[in-house]
């Protein structure tokens, strides 16, 4: 019964979709990863198997280049939180990209879909997702009141995407694993003369994107104002 309706809807859809929408440019891989994290957090919260599966597939389409780029330079030091650092900020996502990349996310989606046989069938037999670009990443663990600075080269006239997400180093970071209050890392991006490209923000699913005018280094500062150690994952396209 549904097939005639689907066919008619299909015709209507093809006629209705405007050209402008069809010409949308694909977001960069860091943006895609951020999108996947937000979607997964929202979908898991609501028990939405389809949303969780879509999020996992978005992440699966991103190729990871583990280890910092050859030209990346790292320095570390003490961190003194600015006085105006907000004590709380809504909207940060607790999901780590490691969950999405691990395969557990799609397994979680299948588990959620178990009550819906049609959806379960569909999700279990989907083809591999489309490739959505590559990112370089570096992992780190920040003890309390410390900061890492990463100087990273970016190509001029090419969109730059930078994300710092909650990490899972795979190592026991001491108190962080067991603490009742998780660490809250913050990060920002500045040019080498100290000009702020993206202001200080909590590690969540929000990325920093811009297009450099020329080939230049930018500095990503990741800081831990909290009392417990925290892991991070720095991702750059």
């Amino acid at each position: 019964m549904l097939r005639p309706a689907i066919f008619l809807s299909l015709i209507a859809a093809v006629l209705a979709v405007p050209v402008a929408a069809q010409e949308a440019r694909p977001p960069g891989p860091v943006s895609t990863l951020s999108l996947a994290l937000r979607l997964y957090a929202q979908a898991a919260q609501e028990g939405d198997a389809l949303g969780m599966a879509v999020a996992a597939r978005l992440a699966e389409g991103i190729r990871l280049r583990e280890g910092a780029g050859a030209l990346w330079q790292k320095d570390s030091g003490a961190f003194s939180p600015p006085a105006d650092l907000p004590a709380d900020l809504p909207g940060s996502a607790p999901v780590s990209p490691d969950l999405l990349f691990s395969g557990a996310a799609i397994s979680g989606a299948l588990l959620m879909a178990e009550e819906d046989e049609a959806l379960s069938d569909l999700l279990s037999e989907l083809p591999p997702p489309a490739l959505r670009g590559s990112v370089s990443l570096a992992r780190g663990t920040l003890p309390p009141k410390r900061r890492d600075g990463w100087s990273i080269p970016f190509a001029g006239q090419s969109p730059a995407g930078i994300g710092v997400f909650a990490g899972d180093s795979g190592e026991d970071s001491g108190e962080a694993a067991d603490a009742a209050a998780p660490s809250q890392l913050w990060w920002m991006v500045e040019d080498l003369s100290g000009g702020v490209m993206c202001p200080l923000r909590p590690v969540s699913d929000v990325i920093c994107s811009f297009t450099p005018a020329e080939n230049v280094f930018y500095r990503v500062v990741i800081a831990n104002p909290s009392a417990v150690a925290g892991d991070y994952m720095l991702v750059v396209n």
Binding site: Y40, A41, A44, Q45, E46, G47, P94, V95, S96, L99, S102, G103, A104, A105, S107, G108, L110, L111, M112, E114, E115
Partner: peptide, 26 residues
């Protein structure tokens, strides 16, 4: 398969507020 999935997924799911409750509802 369901048992294996639960073992694989549960630690990650617990990290998401509301996810465990959603799972219980399901």
């Amino acid at each position: 398969g369901k048992a294996a999935l639960m073992m694989a997924v549960w630690p990650g799911m617990l990290a998401i507020p509301g996810a465990a409750q959603a799972q219980q509802d399901l």
